[in-house]
Amino acid sequence: MQLLAKLLKALNSDDSPWQLAFGVMLGMIMGLTPFLGLHSVLILFIVLFLRVNLSTFLLAYALFSGFTLILNPMMADIGESLLTSSDLNGMWTNLYNSTFGQLMQFYHTLTLGSLLFSLILAPFILVISKVLIVQYRVRFMQWVNKLKIVQVIKSSRVFQLYQALGE
């Protein structure tokens, strides 16, 4: 109910589709990668400092965190193959012996694999979410708002609270 209220508020808000799409993209990266790490601080900074939609970020984070249950082994394999590649060994060794490398924790197979996987996925997620948001607003928003269930949600205290916070 709470999640749905968040989503509805975000979709019906005046925020641009790009703001919402960036929220989804950054939430996806944050959700797929391990929480502890320098990349999480960087994403948090971008999300808070730039006008990225927080609701879509939080929703995407929750959604993609769930996907990790299935995707983790595959992403860890990607990291494993990259870190054990003899061609890249020199680069990894240099990075390993630098403060930045240690803070990044790149030498953890899942951290590197998931970060790389989510970064490759990021532009596609960004564009697809932007298109879907625009299409929703043009084609479905009015129809959805007329749905009984949506009216119930909109009249709920939670939605009212979100609405008030948003203003």
């Binding site: 391990p34 983790n72 860890a76 494993e80 990894w92 060794t93 030498y107 197979t109 694999g113």
Partner: peptide, 9 residues
């Protein structure tokens, strides 16, 4: 959930 790979120090 992945493993830590050690490189030459």
């Amino acid at each position: 959930n992945g493993r830590w790979v050690a490189f030459d120090d």
